[in-house]
Design a protein around this nucleic acid. Structure first.
Length: 779
DNA sequence: GGGTTAGGGT
């Protein structure tokens, strides 16, 4: 044991405190060890390993609280899937001590009544023991794992040119997450569980941060980052196992990875293992997609959530939400209320209405009413400044209850402690993309059943909860089962460019799990051709295409950067591109419109939004980087979102690293400055954004030159009261009308000069293999 | 003349 007795006294003292630390650490390890064994994933480990030995793809359903994300990678490592000796201290210490899985299964036995949609309506607790209830579902349950899913398709694996040949592959385990915070926090936890330093055996990598080393065996990372790695290393040769976690979220990145991984599997054969982890039960899609895949279930640990529906449809969900909040507040026991609304505006007005109601109630009851606790109304959405966001995480003061009015940020991205009641309006503001029109839209639509379940589940994180769905059970039944994958409803410019850069020529034939609309792919090919990233045969061009694929920005903005380096305004262009790659720079609360408008005045450039954003960036950069206080105050005073600014700064620095240095990954380009002359910058913007060039019409609207479409300048644009004759804009967004957002004034005569390919008619409609056409024509 | 869900990038 620990020797705390020898040595001279000063040293002894040090050793003593060290020893105390060591004892504390040992205690902590013991506790962590105990916690691990409580996890359903722990109980499942033998079965899981067996499955993984027999199958190259495992589709693992691990419900909330199953411990899949932290435990499965460690399990693989201990079984040498991560090519590390099993002498790993923690594992060897414990490997022999584990009893039969059934021994550790019992603590989770409990009972819950699960209805058809898999949501608890009520639960029966076993006397004195059950705190946790798990979803039960299909099939029998052995050691917490049950095989389910479709018939195995072992024959589906084809070996092409021998499985892997003599290629020696690396042995690390990659675990992808859709969000950076998740990658960081899970890595930290697992490092602690394994008793190693973060960045040693366990690490993480996200866009601006790489906390890994040559000894890293388990690497948590964002899915987008793994996709980036695939660009350089298409066989993902550093990894013996890739785990795609939260696969049910179906991000664009996971969906592209699926297709790539399928190819990797074919080529690497038995040398490679894929685990697709999902929190929802619909594994059939995954099992059908990956040849030879087998599905398994690890039960979760969630408190029961009782789901309630309205008896009749509500004609105004906002009013209904306010009434429901007040009703829960007056009728239900302790616990905070989480209300799902669709957007900032709606949240602002709900907040106002709720407060009015509360004030009226207070008034009618008189100040002496003591039976009624206070209700603290707190908004949360992504654009809210961090200091206001933080308020939802603070526990409500004694005798008060929080009502949190949230967008879907509270569905997955953040977990708010104390929530026992969820109010689901059944609506969400969702982005969609019309490929034929090249038009994004943002509209309030009904949620999917999966989304409704996710929302309800937020009530059962800390104790039994209740979910109030502001629609009828019949209405729930006719909702879409799941939200369509994002890849089927977004602009594919970057995706197509990445695929091309990875040597996938036939993008239309790429094996997507859910193929995007053909029109969306064609449109992206056209755009990339117009930008000069693809040649007439649909192949990546070296001078433009290859370089654009390396830049972590939208291809149009990448083109702006390349042009800017030639036009002597690289510095400014990098700043502008960094700023437009960031959402929500300006905080524009409705109640304080006069204030934020006044604050914005000093940044406004008459030439457009890009130059206005540049002024903001310059202003921010003048503040000392190390003075958080000064920066926070400046942002707060100017109604500017500090998170957005930090992100813009990170992107700025990353882009400078990519563009400037002479050797790879640097492109060795000159980043000169154009000072106060905006012309070079506006010309560079034109060189990349010309597919979005528009001309003023007599009625004050604009006409997009490439498509002939009528659009309106977005009311947030600084050009709204100036209306230049010609402009380029970042994107079109359809809400109440079709709006052009982020516009800059240009000269019409620049267009044929800077974008001859697009503004001279060309017939490239049937270009080899890829159906590349022209983007627009001259007018 | 009038308005922006949430994520993510070697």
């Amino acid at each position: 044991m620990l020797d705390i007795e020898d040595g001279p006294s000063p040293k002894k003292h040090r050793r003593n405190s060290k020893a105390v630390d060591a004892v504390a650490a040992a205690e902590r390890r013991k506790q962590i060890d105990a916690e691990r064994r409580q996890l359903p994933a722990w109980a499942a480990r033998d079965k899981l390993l067996q499955l993984l030995q027999e199958h190259r793809t495992l589709v693992l359903v691990g419900e909330t609280g199953s411990g899949k994300t932290t435990q499965i990678p460690q399990l693989l490592l201990s079984a040498r899937f991560g090519s590390i000796a099993a002498s790993d201290k923690f594992i060897s210490q414990n490997a022999g001590e584990v009893g039969p899985s059934d021994d550790v299964k019992s603590p989770y036995e409990g009972a819950g009544v699960v209805d058809r949609d898999g949501v608890f309506r009520s639960a029966v607790n076993h006397e004195g023991r059950t705190q946790f209830n798990h979803h039960t579902s299909t099939g029998s349950d052995v050691n917490g794992v049950s095989d389910h899913g479709g018939p195995e398709q072992q024959t589906g694996i084809r070996s092409v040119g021998g499985s892997g040949g003599s290629r020696v592959y690396g042995g690390a385990i990659a675990v992808t997450q859709p969000r950076r915070v998740a990658a960081m926090t899970v890595a930290r936890r697992v490092a602690e569980e394994m008793g190693t330093k973060l960045g040693d055996k366990v690490g993480y990598a996200i866009r601006f941060e790489d906390v890994t080393s040559s000894s890293t065996r388990i690497k948590y990372m964002t899915d987008g980052l793994l996709l980036r790695e695939a660009l350089v290393d298409p066989m993902l040769s550093r990894y013996r196992v890739v785990i795609i976690d939260e696969a049910h979220e179906r991000t664009v990145h996971t969906d592209v990875l699926f297709g790539l991984l399928k190819g990797v599997q074919v080529r690497r054969g038995d040398d490679f293992r894929l685990i697709v982890m999902s929190a929802t039960l619909d594994t059939a899609r995954f099992v059908d997609y990956f040849p030879g895949a087998v599905a398994a279930l690890i039960r979760g640990r969630q408190f029961p959530v009782r789901v309630m529906y309205t008896a009749k449809p509500e004609d105004n969900y906002l009013d209904a939400a306010i009434n429901a909040t007040l009703q829960v507040h007056s009728d239900e026991g302790e616990g905070d209320i989480l209300v799902f609304l669709t957007g900032q505006d709606e949240i602002d007005s709900a907040e106002r209405l709720l407060k009015e109601h509360l004030a009226a109630l207070q008034g009618s009851r008189g100040a002496s009413s003591s039976g009624c606790r206070e209700l603290l109304v707190l908004p949360i959405y992504a654009a809210l400044p961090p200091e206001q966001q933080m308020k939802v995480f603070e526990p409500a003061p004694e005798g008060q209850r929080k009502a949190i009015l949230a967008t879907n940020i509270a569905e997955t991205s953040i977990t708010i402690p104390g929530v026992r009641y969820v109010i689901d309006t059944g609506h969400v503001k969702a982005r969609d993309y019309n490929a034929k029109l090249g038009l994004e839209s943002l509209a309030v639509v009904p949620v999917s059943q999966a989304q409704a379940r996710q929302r309800s589940g937020r009530a059962g994180r800390e104790g039994p909860g209740k979910a109030f769905r502001l629609y009828t059970e019949a209405d729930f039944a006719v909702l879409e089962p799941t939200t369509p994958p994002e890849i089927t409803r977004c602009n594919l410019g970057s995706v197509v460019l990445q695929l091309k850069a990875m040597g996938i020529h036939d993008v239309l034939g790429f094996d997507f799990m859910d193929p995007p609309p053909r029109a969306a792919i064609l449109r992206s090919l056209e755009l990339l051709y117009a930008l000069g990233a693809l040649d007439a045969t649909g192949c990546l061009t070296e001078e433009v295409g290859r370089r654009l694929s390396r830049l972590p920005v939208d291809p149009m903005f990448g083109r702006v950067l390349l042009a800017a380096t030639e036009m002597g305004c690289g510095q400014e262009a990098v700043a502008v591109v960094a700023m437009v790659s960031t959402e929500n720079v300006f905080h524009t609360p409705r109640q304080k419109e006069r204030e934020w408008r006044a604050a914005r005045l000093k940044f406004i450039s008459r030439e457009g939004d890009h130059l206005t954003l540049l002024n903001v960036f310059r202003g921010f950069r003048e503040l000392p980087k190390e003075s958080n206080k000064a920066r926070t105050a400046w942002c707060s005073d100017n109604f500017i979102n500090i998170r957005a600014m930090r992100k813009a700064e990170d992107i700025y620095e990353q882009l400078v690293r990519f563009l400037g240095p002479p050797s790879p990954p640097g492109l060795g380009l000159q980043l000169a400055t154009c000072g106060e002359d905006s012309t070079p910058l506006r010309r560079a913007l034109t060189a990349g954004l010309f597919p979005h060039a528009a001309k003023l019409q007599p009625d004050g609207s604009y006409r997009v030159l490439a498509t002939g479409r009528q659009v309106f300048l977005h009311p947030s644009s600084v050009l709204l009261d100036r209306k230049p004759d010609c402009l380029v804009f970042n994107e079109l967004m359809h809400t109440t009308r079709t709006y052009a957002r982020d516009a800059v004034a240009i000269e019409a005569r620049w267009l044929p000069e800077l974008a001859p390919a697009a503004f001279a008619v060309k017939s490239a409609a049937a270009i080899a293999g890829a159906g590349v056409g022209t983007s627009g024509g001259s007018r």
